[in-house]
Amino acid sequence: MHMKTTFKQENQHLVMAFEGRLDTAASTQAEEDMRVLYDCEGKDIILDCTNLEYISSSGLRLFLGLIKIARPKGSHVYLTGLNNDLRQVFDETGFTTLFEML
């Protein structure tokens, strides 16, 4: 597949790394992968996008869905490693203001 996620639990953080293209086709699997983050219990979440090449609105929806669940539980959701093109997509959609950028 074009898309791969890696989940890691560190001391106080939950880290998920995205690799490849998070398009509509990949979003079904990605949604499954991201369920693990829903049990954050107040721990901060870091979404590592260093190797993310592409994201469409389906992927953005997953991110928005996550933040809607995690924030009421007292968790912060951080984004890191966005390349310029993706950063622009986040800017265009107003998502930059929803997340805390590392």
Partner: peptide, 11 residues
């Protein structure tokens, strides 16, 4: 509406 907060934004 890209200016809304997390709580108010729809999918």
């Amino acid at each position: 509406d890209t200016t809304l907060s997390v709580e108010k934004r729809s999918i």
